[in-house]
């Protein structure tokens, strides 16, 4: 069972969306009413790896800012980038995931005040009327598609962005849960972006996510249906033969999709904030990530030394270019 119990804020228990979500959960899921999610989520330190045994699902309203400016180098250069907060936490378990050190609980929170999220997206859009395009990213704190069969969010945001022609919506995912997307008419401003790594790396570090082959299959299916697709080759992890693995990845993609049709490819090397690295050491004491020789950068992040990471990024970028991908479509994520 995915969720052992579902915690619902008392004052939203009668909302249609809440009832719809509850109706899609198994009957055996224990339902508990709570005053407010802030008093529960993060009020106590819950071990990250408890997500392996059972998770709570929390349905709540998020107050305050729901649309936030993305950090520098978050997306393609030249346009403003924002992310919107529709959920906290992820059902998957990737060893390098920053969420393990970000929240104090692995429980999943879904924010059901979608109308307010929509309003803030429109408000932000209207504040950038002079821009050619403005990006909105889903999936900063959760996978965009993993629970879409329960939340039915895709349908909602599809409709929101159909009315915002200059806005782009990015749905970041590692999920094979594309059933909802397959039913939706492709929209040029809604891009599904897959995080992808070489197969051996994905097997080592990504747990419960769609496999390498499943992700490529999804990319092909969505691409064939006309959905715009982007790629995040992130995190790139050093091994002496990492170049060959990325060449193989592009070969595998090439036989399935027209690479020139990809909207963008972002490249990023593995990196950790101090807190996340501490959690990595605690949660995965024998992870191969410990054999990586990281340095502590100007921003206190643990990552490869500058020469190594820039060299790695250039190597993968050169592989992209060797497959005739437009250099304008390749960008370095979270790098100067």
């Amino acid at each position: 069972m995915l969720f052992s119990s579902v915690l619902v804020e008392k004052n939203i228990a009668d909302e249609k969306l809440v009832k719809d979500i509850l109706s899609r959960l198994p009957d055996s899921t224990e339902k508990i009413e709570i005053e407010s999610f802030e008093k529960v989520f993060g009020a106590v330190k819950k071990p990250y790896l408890q997500k392996r045994e059972n998770l709570n699902l929390i349905l709540a309203h998020k107050k305050g800012k729901l649309v936030k400016q993305a950090p520098d180098a978050y997306g393609l250069e030249g346009s403003p980038h924002y992310y919107f907060v529709h959920a906290y936490n992820c059902i998957y378990e990737c060893e390098y995931c920053y969420l393990q050190g970000y929240f104090n609980s692995p429980d999943i929170v879904i924010f059901t005040n979608r109308d307010e999220i929509q309003n803030q997206i429109i408000e932000t859009y209207n504040n950038h009327k002079n821009e050619n395009e403005i990006w909105f990213h889903a999936g900063e704190f959760s996978d965009s598609l993993a629970l879409s069969h329960i939340t039915q969010e895709c349908e909602f945001y599809w409709q929101v962005f159909s009315k915002l022609p200059k806005a782009k919506l990015e749905l970041r995912t590692k999920s094979a849960n594309i059933k909802a997307l397959k039913k939706l008419k492709p929209q040029s401003n809604v891009i599904v972006s897959y995080s992808l790594s070489p197969e051996f790396q994905l097997k080592s570090y990504d747990r419960k996510t769609a496999t390498y082959k499943q992700r490529i299959k999804c990319i092909k299916e969505l691409s064939d249906l006309g959905h715009p697709v982007g790629l995040h080759l992130d995190p790139i992890i050093y091994t002496p033969d990492f170049k060959q693995h990325y060449e193989q990845l592009f070969e595998d993609l090439k036989v399935n999709i027209n690479l020139q049709k990809l909207c963008y490819i972002s490249l990023g090397v593995v990196r950790f904030s101090k807190d996340v690295y501490a959690q990595l050491e605690k949660n995965y004491p024998t992870s191969n990530l410990h054999q990586q020789n990281f340095t502590t950068g100007f921003d206190q992040k643990k990552r490869y030394s500058r020469p190594l990471r820039l060299w790695m990024l250039n190597q993968v970028k050169n592989i992209c270019l060797s497959y005739d991908i437009d250099p304008q479509k390749v960008y370095l994520c979270m790098e100067e």
């Binding site: 500058r306 020469p307 190594l308 990471r309 820039l310 990024l313």
Partner: peptide
């Protein structure tokens, strides 16, 4: 150039 990931240095 070495600090910025020069191919020949790596």
């Amino acid at each position: 150039s070495i600090i910025n990931g020069d191919e020949n240095a790596i």
